[in-house]
Design a protein around this nucleic acid. Structure first.
Lengths: 243, 243
DNA sequence: CGTGCGATCCTTCTTTAGGATGAGCCGCAC
DNA sequence: GTGCGGCTCATCCTAAAGAAGGATCGCACG
């Protein structure tokens, strides 16, 4: 248990300005904690072994086109006891779900107020998991054709991660409720091709209907409705901070 | 904005012992707050008008077979600016999603440590929403036949709420990935009947495929995989509380 | 270079889903 | 009572989905 020697929190971010800002923010709240700063995910991976931090805060999760992703994968696989929190823009919502799904402990949106950030981090350090209301309702399905871009992420930890980008793209549209014909039109391929892909997808996921596949995909964060989170929840300004 | 006059937090719970326990717990953390105690949801509804609390904490959300549910519905509809947090057992996970879906701001599991409870409440009061990792992966679909019991909740705020219990039951199984034949066998009715219900369900939800229906249902918390949340997250005991 | 794999396309076939329409039974409310 | 809605079943029909087989091309890896 290493007693209460010198608890450390690791901050991973390549931009030193931003990294320092976060360290200062956190230090105000946790004066007794030593902060380990890493400017890359590779540095983080090598450092996490030596100093076993009680928390890892990873900024710009999607930076460097998935490089930090691999790093996170390594960390999550080998040091599962370290709570990992991602800080990123709300646009990358599905990335968050994937990460949470893979073992991360929290996802924080950049634009959140600093108080909220701190509270979330405390929650995670207490062993909880935190993610902003992801299962939010969203009835407008939107035109599935507009889903074109992939935007998905390997999806560590689930069989979905073993799918090719193309198949994940198709699975995403299936999860969005699009029929094969629409998917085919959106991808400019023949419907048979979509079906052909789906056969592989079903086999990979171990299901035999599109609804079951959509179910798994949604649980992994793919094709979530409009990912229009309530993240920053500026809806109910509580007049003033309490404590 | 009523200045910083006397901020109040409302606690709704019929059991005075439990209610007092929570009040004491919260008072330790927020000394400057006045607590309004209600022993029923009806009392809460009538009180929320006069004293406009900055937070409502509702215990035993599912108590009295949905009575408090209606109360919550009224509150959520008319006083949307009041953050409402539910405290309940983890078994009622889908209720939570429904509630969050309907406008509640947080769902807290009873078994959470008091620190976590407090942190979550602070988060909510800061305008954030909190729910324990609901989109957790769950690949084991389980036998859809075992879904027999309804266990669902009106689903305030969504068209799903206007469905009859029977149809919600069917929709739940659809969301679980069950084909019509399996649903029919599970309900001991003919497949034609299931299809007949589905037509109504589709029309009500404004969709035309089962996958889209399943999508909406899952967003409302129906048919979620095993609702095996990570709620109390006792996975990574962080050696010690920090601050 | 061959081998593997992803992506694309194809045919044939069976099963499932979905639309349309009608109808009987029951309970509840006006 | 009359009506409405839920639940049940039926028939007919079209469209969509899924299973199984094979085929082509390109690209990467050893």
């Amino acid at each position: 248990m290493r007693s209460t020697k010198s608890m450390s929190v690791m901050i991973v971010e390549n931009n030193s300005m931003i990294r320092d800002a976060y360290v200062r923010l956190l230090r105000r709240d946790m004066p007794s904690v030593t902060f380990i700063e890493c400017d890359s995910s590779t540095a983080a991976v090598s450092t996490v072994t030596a100093d076993q931090p009680v928390l890892m805060v990873i900024l710009n999760y999607d930076l460097a086109g998935g490089q930090s992703l691999k790093g996170l994968g390594v960390i999550l696989r080998h040091y599962e006891t370290v709570p990992v929190v991602l800080v990123d823009a709300p646009e990358n919502a599905q990335i968050a779900v994937n990460a949470l799904n893979s073992g991360a402990s929290g996802y924080i949106v950049k634009s959140m107020r600093s108080e909220c950030v701190l509270q979330s981090l405390r929650l995670v350090m207490l062993g909880e998991k935190y993610l902003p209301s992801f299962c939010a309702a969203g009835h407008a399905l939107g035109a599935p054709e507009a889903l074109g871009a992939d935007g998905t992420v390997p999806g560590l930890g689930t069989p979905i991660g073993t799918l090719s980008p193309r198949r994940r793209q198709i699975l995403t549209m299936v999860a969005a409720g699009a029929p094969n014909k629409v998917i085919a039109r959106a991808l400019s391929v023949h419907e048979v091709t979509v079906k052909s892909h789906l056969r592989v997808i079903f086999r990979t996921l171990g299901v035999n209907t599109r609804t079951q596949a959509a179910r798994l995909a949604m649980c992994a964060g793919l094709g979530l409705p409009e990912t229009s989170m309530v993240y920053d929840g500026h809806s109910a300004p509580p007049t003033e901070s309490l404590h």
